[in-house]
Design a protein around this nucleic acid. Structure first.
Lengths: 341, 341
DNA sequence: TTGTATGCGTTATCAG
DNA sequence: CTGATAACGCATACAA
């Protein structure tokens, strides 16, 4: 590899001069020598080592983002939003799939720290596992000491800067919409217990019911785990209820779609017999048949906003207890209608 | 940050000894001092700098992967496959979205090179733009000089190691399946001209027709650009044909689904009135109504296999003209049936 | 305006 | 078995 020394020799100047020219430093350099340096660098195809530079500046311009699974449209949108603004800001993004496994996450945090990344974006609802929270807190605080910016997308049980939706409000708004259409017997498909957002959304569902004096019926709450399969299982349970609900609210679009497909193949018409609504507005939501009514959480913007604030945090432009909330939006499509009869 | 020097002091040994212990080097170290080092490192929460190490070893253990858009299920699967084996092999993955724009790709190649990544994975069909090919070739050859492994997933116009499908065979197998069911009037939705794989697949379609003495009819070939929208446009053209085809083969699942939705909403029954088939087997293919018959290209395995061979190439275990072909597979679902009447 | 020298945190090559 | 010390490639405070 040709180094800055080679360029200096070729241009007949010192390496400091080369460094100044190539880094657009404030330090004055005569037009003449500047050109000599530029020429030499060009003809030698000089490619500066970002590693060596990072070692000195303490600035890698690399950001790590830890997601559950980049194939999940939810995370894919986050990654894309993150990568887009990262690129605009001159950062590279390392994507880490954890499958939500504590040990993988911890391992990645450690590795990213060894690479001295400028920031770590924790995407997706935090884990509730106590041992994990403890270890993560310790590891992350180590990173913070070297000014590594830590930012969470979605509530985490360890402290730190946060960009998130108002999960409770989102679920409540979804339920309210169904209620306003006249639904009173609304099934809710919840998520896994080990994710922090699960109870938040459930709370929103309950709140909406309460506002309209609809008694909470535990039989109408199905446990899910954010997979299509679990939603299909939930659908089977729904079909066994002595009285069918007039609407189903799933805590994610994926599960809403899983449920929709299962109910349809059981012979029910959507939304004729039963309305279905989700939360998230993943791309598949508009492709289902019928298209899914949902609360759009705008994950792309979450990712984008996450990186933006990550960099701000790194530069000390925002505080460590900063919290930003992304607004959600109701998307009305054909999977919901007023209850029949 | 605590450095190797701090650890050495705390353990009362030299930094070389610390390095040896922590790197599990072959060099002999007494059990006693080893333990002292380990203890010191632990109590100081020592985190070795991967940057400094990389500077010396010339080994960053970072791989860059350039994709069109990580939100596209096609690329998402590649990224996941790549990341999985990268992690297993001790590598980090930098994901770069290019939106297939030549200047963004070139910019990324350059940046990745500055970070001295151990390898670059070029995912997705190569661009045909001549100026791009030229510049990319030059840039990539620079990277090769420092033993950066370059591997393409899908045919590129610049030289290098390749992992790919047999695109032509895949498209031919798709068409053959339709023909064997009795279809003779088969529409083909092609892709954009600026991607190398487009003509390869078209060729497969033609081959299959020829094998069965079905004359090639240019009116039945619609131009697409791999988007849902373009597929809907193609569907409109299909509907205007004086005689409807009995089957449609789209060169990607995304377009097949777009076409399917459009034809359905125009009142046609699938596969009753018309059969539809795609290529790729993205996840959405099994969620469409009816589920899509397709040729599975196994993009996850492409990504996984890509990284595996990238690392091999880096270690000189395979040659620079290595070529591996991933086998495809026919997935029969309900969107295809024998022609009616 | 230019150059010299120090240090960033390691690994690796030598001597002991 | 252990320890100096020279790289790795660069940015920067300081000197000229």
């Amino acid at each position: 590899m040709t180094t800055i020394i080679d360029v200096a020799k070729a241009a007949g100047v010192s390496i400091s001069t080369v460094s100044r020219v190539l880094n657009k430093s404030q330090h004055p350099v005569s037009q003449e020598t500047r050109q000599k340096v530029l020429d030499a660098a060009a003809t030698l195809y000089y490619s500066p080592s970002a590693l060596a530079r990072a070692l000195i500046t303490q600035d890698t311009h690399i950001i790590g983002i830890i997601v559950g699974d980049n194939q999940d449209p939810f995370f894919a949108a986050i990654v894309r939003g993150a990568e887009d603004v990262a690129r605009a800001l001159g950062f590279l993004v390392i994507v880490c799939n954890s499958d939500r496994q504590p040990d993988i996450i911890l391992q990645y945090i450690q590795t990213l720290n060894e690479y001295r990344v400028d920031g770590i974006l924790l995407a997706g609802g935090g884990l509730t596992d106590l041992d994990y929270v403890d270890k993560a807190t310790r590891l992350l605080s180590m990173a913070r000491r070297r000014n590594c910016a830590i930012l969470s997308l979605g509530k985490q049980l360890h402290p730190g800067v946060l960009v998130s939706n108002d999960e409770t409000l989102a679920a409540a708004d979804a339920a309210r919409y169904l209620i306003q259409l006249g639904h009173r017997r609304i099934c809710y498909i919840s998520g896994s217990d080990n994710i922090t957002t699960t109870p938040l959304r459930l709370k929103g569902y309950c709140q909406a019911l309460e506002e309209h004096d609809i008694p909470f019926n535990p039989d109408l709450v199905m446990a899910g785990d954010y997979t299509l399969q679990s939603a299909q299982a939930a659908a089977r349970l729904i079909l066994k209820l002595d009285q069918l609900p007039t609407a189903v609210l799933a805590s994610t679009d994926q599960m809403a779609i899983g449920c929709l497909v299962a109910l349809k193949s059981a012979g029910l018409s959507i939304p004729g017999d039963i309305s279905i609504m989700g939360i998230n507005n993943i791309e598949a939501a508009s492709c289902s048949d019928p298209p899914l009514t949902t609360i759009s959480l705008n994950m792309y913007e979450m990712g984008a906003c996450g990186i933006k604030n990550l960099v701000k945090l790194r530069h000390g432009e925002i505080d460590n207890d900063f919290h930003y909330t992304i607004k959600h939006e109701l998307i009305v499509r054909d999977s919901v209608a007023p209850p029949s009869g």
